[in-house]
């Protein structure tokens, strides 16, 4: 009796699932634009990633996603500081974060859509040609790094320099910086351009974008090694992140990343994102 009931249920469930599939196929084929929303949580003040005027490459990618999903794009703006994930996507305020590290455990990440690296940023007229943490020049130059606070974590270059005893000539810049200013993390690039520091070690996308906008030419060069032992990576895969359990959206986004890879690559190239996952001319100095 009960086994018969169970098999009956299984058939009903399978039937319902099939019906749902058919309906959803019809809906996605014929749904008018704006019928549903793609809600993105993003920082309102952090180019080249995103800003409230939607001028960042993550804004451009979000538009691409919304177009592909035939969804209306909406934003929840929140500074990407400590608590960002907890207060935004994990409170169901939005559906997707456009950029998270691919091994970030607090969201369900998509497949990676780019891989970048920490870079050395110097003024071209200084001819410093620094490409390795083991370059002896780093012991005497003014080196800028971004620091995170007292939380038990910090940026990889801060650790790499400290490990090599390069400490007293290092100038720390808060990765948060002063949020009243536009794009606060960019202050460290300004400091290279205006000579406050000789070299900055920063995450590639930030450097690639702002290096083109400073009044003097800057060189941007990927760091070496890519992984400092025992385990300190400078190269990160970046994915989109959805809420855990939202596998349907994750699968859709994976499909878009695969189908529209060329368009995504072009957006990243437009913003000068240094890539280490492909031989692309994102940044000619790499």
């Amino acid at each position: 009796m009960s086994s018969r009931f169970r098999s009956l249920r299984a058939t009903q469930v399978a039937g319902a699932a099939l019906l749902a599939l058919l309906i959803s196929g019809l809906v996605s084929a014929y749904r008018p634009a704006g019928q549903h929303e793609l809600r993105v949580c993003a920082d309102p003040n952090n180019l080249p990633f995103s800003n409230e005027k939607q001028q960042g490459f993550e804004n451009r990618i979000a538009e691409l996603l919304a177009r592909d999903l035939d969804a209306k794009l909406s934003y929840v703006w929140w500074a990407q500081h400590r608590g960002f994930v907890r207060n935004t996507i994990n409170q169901n305020q939005c559906d997707v974060l456009i950029g998270v590290p691919s091994s970030f455990e607090r969201t369900r990440p998509t497949i990676p859509y780019y891989r970048s690296t920490y870079v050395f940023v110097t003024r071209r007229d200084r001819h410093l040609k620094i490409a390795s943490f083991d370059d002896p020049q780093l012991r005497r130059l003014r080196v800028g790094v971004q620091l995170i606070g007292d939380d038990g974590t910090n940026t990889p270059p801060a650790h790499a320099l400290a490990k090599r005893g390069i400490i007293t000539n290092v100038k720390g810049y808060s990765v948060y910086s002063d949020y009243r200013q536009p794009n606060p993390p960019a202050r460290i690039i300004d400091a290279v351009a205006n000579g406050d520091i000789d070299v900055a070690v920063v995450w590639g996308p930030l450097a690639g974008y702002f290096a083109r906008r400073e009044p003097v030419p800057l060189d941007v060069a990927g760091v070496s090694p890519q992984i400092d032992l025992p385990f300190l990576p400078f190269v990160f895969d970046i994915s989109m992140g959805v809420r855990r359990g939202n596998d349907a959206l994750r699968d859709s986004l994976n499909s878009i990343i695969q189908r529209r890879r060329a368009e995504i690559d072009q957006i990243l190239a437009d913003y000068g994102v240094p890539r280490v996952d492909m031989a692309v001319s994102g940044s000619s100095t790499l």
Binding site: D43, A79, T155, P156, V175, P185, L206, F231, F236
Partner: peptide
């Protein structure tokens, strides 16, 4: 990830 900067 903080302010667009990945780290471990």
């Amino acid at each position: 990830y903080i302010a667009g900067t990945p780290f471990v």
